[in-house]
Design a protein around this nucleic acid. Structure first.
Lengths: 214, 214, 214, 214
DNA sequence: TATGAATGAGCCTTCATTCAT
DNA sequence: TATGAATGAAGGCTCATTCAT
């Protein structure tokens, strides 16, 4: 549960396992229970560390939370996302993006949960940080992609790139949030395979759902 | 302290001056701060009621929360949604739905926030209740609508109605969640008017974003 | 559980079932849980009466407790004890007393428990009332009995009547208190039948346990 | 309140200044007021410790109570009772036992009060623990003593050792419980000196109160 | 670095009690 | 007589945080 491989970058050798263990446990707790639902005692217990130790490493609960946030941000960053998107057509790029984006979410569910919870918070002064760090990256990339498609005459010029981006991201996010609820609905067959959903979604966004009449 | 005059000429609303005040305050608090972030002291203060009174009426914090949830559920129920959707074409029906759904969310932001937070909760035993009470109504209605469109030859038969439903709901929900973040992005012009977004979204879902080549 | 036959003495018809039901429930609760362990809510629930009603009838928790105490006192009073003691010899009288006393305790275990708990209380200002009402009656009677036995030359004159009384009462009380503990001990055969214990006890107190040597 | 100087020069008694103080205060409170009548706030105040500290050391009120119980048990244990009983005759042994037992009770009145209160509790799952820990020791010892007396021909063989044991213990316990009540009775002269009572009691149990006729 | 002990503030809950009806 | 609503005080317990070691 605790990744000792984190000492890969050996610049801060002294920070050691203690810090790492705490951070690791904290990421899980904050993601699952939210800020207020998370207790430092539980984190300390999970990390097998004295509670006071948390304060030596992170100063306060807020400090720990921020560290968790930062850590998650890097994992969610589209730059780190791994697989690069490269396809000749914009159509294909969007398909790839939709799929990779969804996969990324499921690879880091904790990060996403935390991020979404933060979005729901009313007065969070951290919203902006998250927006810049996570959302804007994906968003801007998508918009750029659409713009290029429009320039290449592939995407209709009447489309608002931002709306398309929100629609795609939103459809992914909502699927992520409610997947286990959907599974109990009739008329739902996609929920089993993430890929299936992604493909069907791309298709709708690309070609619409209306029959082409004219 | 609570308008004793107003409720007197009402029907038998006497049972619940205090109860109503508590519930009202609780709805706001739970929506804004979440379950763990909400304190009964604050609710009592806002309702101008003794803290012990909360327990007299709702038994426990959990009991109060459940009452809030139930209350919100009824407000979010699509049946109560008010404006009925009636249009000759499926295309128009979907447009209307998208818009009304979005409006409903903005009319009851607290309910939506609570609902979404509950969706994010890992182990919530209330998820199912919420799913049935709120989500399924909208979802089933959308699916039915698409099915009819397919039967009428208006909607492509290759479309999975469930995916379309998730996409539409998701796009709305995500817009609701992140609206104030989007406003700080460049390339975003829709965020000001809810209607504009709704229209543009419907357009994309209906006709897609690709240029029709053939 | 509630004796409605209590309306036997119909002098206070108005006091009715409510008062009676409360008192009845209170007797049980106070006996089983003690003063601090008893809650008025529970009494009200058991009596199927509104909590506020208790205050109308008894004024306060203390008032109710006092009423219970008084009620129990009358039941424990040796006068009401029913079977009168009448035997030609003091020896026989003591035997009878020991047995009847023990039986009385087991007939009103609640009263005894309450009484003993009160005895254990450090600063109880009710101790005196109980002492006069319950203990002194039995005690004085026993002492008197012994005195007569001494006058009649039946009881040794060197015996302190008070010590004998304490010994007899104490042996009974302790048996009552610890009966279910004793049952788990080896070497204990008396605990099953109350009568057996009483007889054996009387025998010891009367003739001692030493072999008569001289 | 607790000798901070005394324990410093002791051996590693450092672990438990607070703990010890809490336990000490708790013993007094629980003994005097019973479980339900005791408040942790008061204990904390008496121990000059933060209330939260109690939970740090004992986990809960119940935990603290159990610790108190355990502590008292050891003090009441007949093994620790100090003065050993050694006399040539069983008669003398019983006399000694009666006296030492009574003295022990008065030396640890709190322990005895707690113990007796627990005996009065209806549903106490701790009864057995107490029975084994405290009562059984004394009881078995007495029974054994009597058995030996019977084997030596000193004690009548018709005597049930268990009954004699209960009588002796009960007479002591009852004297302990009701001493201050007895003092207000006429006809009572023993209550002043514990020794006097003990002697008189032993005499009765040994030789009975009847005049030896034959 | 790491820890056990300690703390003050606050939380949820319960209690005995009062009040209006 | 009887009750539901309301309350202030207190109770047990948890939390984030600090301190000495």
């Amino acid at each position: 549960m605790i990744k000792r491989s984190a000492s890969r970058d050996q610049d801060t050798q002294t920070s050691g396992q203690g810090r790492e263990a705490i951070l690791s446990a904290a990421k899980i707790q904050f993601a699952e229970q939210g800020y207020h639902g998370t207790t430092l005692s539980l984190i300390a217990a999970h990390a097998k560390v004295c509670k006071a130790n948390i304060f030596h490493h992170f100063g306060s609960k807020e400090g720990l939370y921020l560290a968790v946030l930062k850590d998650y941000c890097e994992q969610l960053s589209p730059l780190r996302g791994g697989r690069s998107i490269s396809a000749p057509t914009c159509r294909e790029q969007l398909r790839q993006f939709a799929q990779i984006h969804l996969e990324n979410m499921f690879n880091e569910p904790g990060a996403v949960q935390l991020f979404l919870r933060e979005l729901l918070a009313q007065d969070s002064h951290r919203k902006e940080m998250l927006a810049k760090g996570v959302l804007e990256g994906n968003f801007a990339r998508l918009v750029q992609m659409v713009r290029e498609g429009q320039a290449a005459g592939e995407i209709r010029s009447t489309i608002d790139p931002a709306v398309l981006a929100v629609a795609l991201l939103g459809a992914d996010v909502f699927f992520f949030m409610a997947r286990d609820v959907f599974q109990h609905f009739r008329d739902v067959s996609f929920a089993e395979g993430v890929e299936d959903y992604s493909k069907a979604l791309s298709e709708i966004l690309l070609t619409g759902c209306l029959v082409e009449r004219d």
